[in-house]
Design a protein around this nucleic acid. Structure first.
Lengths: 206, 206
DNA sequence: CAGCTGAAGTTAGTATCGCTAACTTTGAAT
DNA sequence: ATTCAAAGTTAGCGATACTAACTTCAGCTG
């Protein structure tokens, strides 16, 4: 049996935390969303976890390293959400793509600061093998569906180009939405309807 | 004659700076682009201007206030660039819109950190009358062209919806480009070609 | 032209934060 | 039972945003 506790438990009693690394990533993710990517501090995360401000450096090289792990978790969540969206709409490829777009924006709306961290930070935040691979998988999900929709007579290059366009559009919607830029111009945008419409137009076979 | 210098000159000699407010905004804008929105410091801007770190607070309430002014200048530049793009293509409305999109992305590529500041910060960064008005003018330039293209038989609502879509797309391209997210998925995107193509598709009258 | 005043500087100091160094505790392997 | 490395701790450094209290100086006024 374990002499301490299950290494996953209520985690309070002793000198050692149990799994401070994972706990920190979770707490930082929470604080990022609460205070903003530029205003949160790891000191506060330490306070919340009842640990000294020097403790994190036994698990991570620096603040950036922690954020790298938060970004990784974010990419995993996003990819999962995209795959679920794809699977939820078995009949029509255009609608599948549309739903994937909506779930991309939904993720951004749910975790805006994590989203900004993932896509808006310097490239070294994505400098992790698992992260890169997850990112590629996420984008591939889209390409496959677009190629699927175009049919075999079209080149893979066409599918790639359309995928980039769709991604760009959906990413713009997500960004403008979470940064309240639509509101800044006094617009209320029905993003789901927009995505459905734009997907149709961009994928239209004239 | 002026007892000091022309209040716009080489600006070194005396106790008083000349126009520290404007100089700071310019220097901060430069440092933001050099070091990144999250890494620059106003202390360094002070050093560069040969002034104590307390001096800025005679002109601005806090760091955020300086950034607000940088954002304002950015919006003015962007709006100017958009208007120039519109005027450069007198014949075809679709091409005019296309060119405006390209100049939006070109601005982002030229001043990525300023662009992030303008659109990616909390709304209070745009909390300035001139900024808001400039922003509206910038978006109106687009709406007018879209309405122009659609013709009078179409509702203004259709023009608005299409404008939002076009903006969203172009904003996504700009964001993904300056954050090197295309490269992260091993894509080299010809953004100008993409914009032309997507503009055509989104504006297509089926 | 002497003197006053207020705007725009200064120095000095505080609190917070990221991070390091050197020491301590503790669980687990030998 | 002893040892030892992992994972904590305290103490302290340097940078930063910002404040308070003092100083300089340009321009107005009697």
């Amino acid at each position: 049996m374990e002499s301490r506790q299950n290494r996953e438990d209520i985690s309070k009693p002793g000198y050692h935390h149990g799994d401070l690394g994972a706990a920190l990533v979770g707490q930082v993710r929470h604080l990022i969303e609460r205070d903003g990517l530029s205003d949160f501090s790891i000191s506060e995360a330490c306070k919340a976890l009842g640990v000294s401000t020097a403790a994190p450096y036994k698990h991570f090289s620096d603040k950036h390293d922690i954020l790298r792990h938060v970004a990784k978790a974010g990419f995993q969540d996003l990819t999962l959400a995209m795959e679920r969206a794809r699977d939820s709409e078995p009949d029509d490829a255009v609608r599948r793509i549309s739903e994937m777009g909506k779930s991309y924006v939904a993720f951004a709306a749910r975790s805006p600061e994590t989203f900004k961290l993932m896509f808006g930070s310097k490239p070294d935040i994505k400098d992790d093998e698992v992260t890169k691979e997850t990112g590629h998988r996420c984008f591939d999900v889209l390409i496959v569906e677009v190629a699927n929709h175009l049919g075999t007579e079209n080149s893979a290059d066409a599918a790639l180009k359309l995928s980039i366009m769709l991604w760009s559009f959906v990413h713009g919607v997500a960004s403008l939405k979470i940064d309240k830029d639509y509101e800044a111009v006094r617009i209320e945008a029905d993003t789901n309807a927009m995505i459905a419409e734009a997907t149709r137009r961009l994928l239209a076979t004239r």
